[in-house]
Amino acid sequence: MKLARAWFTLLMLSFQRLLWSASTLMVLVPLVACALFLVYERYDLGSHDQGTFEETFDDFSTDFMIVVFTLFVIPVCALAYATTSIGGDREDRTLLFLLVRPIPRWLILLAKLMATLPLVLGIVVASFFVFCRLAGPVGREAFVLYLPPVFYMTLAYVCLFHLFAVTFRHSTIVALIYALFMEYFLGNMPGIVKRIAVSFYGRSMMYDLGARHGLSAPDPTWFVPVSAQTAVEALACLSIGGVLLALWIFSVREYRDLT
């Protein structure tokens, strides 16, 4: 009972510290920019001939959902909190006060993860909902269809960045290199190399789910998507594997290696 209370306190403490951190304010910058972009797109293009529902859906999915939301907004939101949940304590050296409490190390990391996950999922899903509302009828359809890929990608990024946070001292930079460099390059490589990128599975799910509205991969011979089911399994495996590895690393590493 004592342990459960301590763990829950740590979870709430971590959640509050993340919520009121500078990251929250900074994450709003790209989100507001995206909202303004969508408002402009909708009302400016509304004055012109917009094309069929399928064409607009394709544009929204390809230009906004895949390139901006999937490849930028989700990783950046995950990075903002997942690397700072444990990284912030490492940077400030306050992690020590947690490590000398009677909570097993793996539970400390689990509390941090559980504090980060709802926050990032909340921000990503809420902003996704707002963006879809701003995009009009196409957005409403996209919200229903793309919620699962958004959810699984967010989960995968949060877990992966927690793994980075316990493994690397400058985890924010490693996560940034991964999100903006590796994901972009790996996701655009020919062959099956791209299958190690989180975004590949998210995009595959989107192409699969959006197929009913005529959405397809730009070049099916170059980008060979997997089915939505396979993508879900891959992302779930990546998330669980990443978390288990992170928990193990955190429970065996000494404090000096963590700071």
């Binding site: 500078a22 900074m26 990075l79 903002a80 930079i173």
Partner: peptide, 13 residues
């Protein structure tokens, strides 16, 4: 901003 994460978010945005 001082800390790495907020700088990285703003800079990449």
């Amino acid at each position: 901003l001082q800390r790495m994460a907020p700088i990285a978010i703003t800079w990449s945005s």
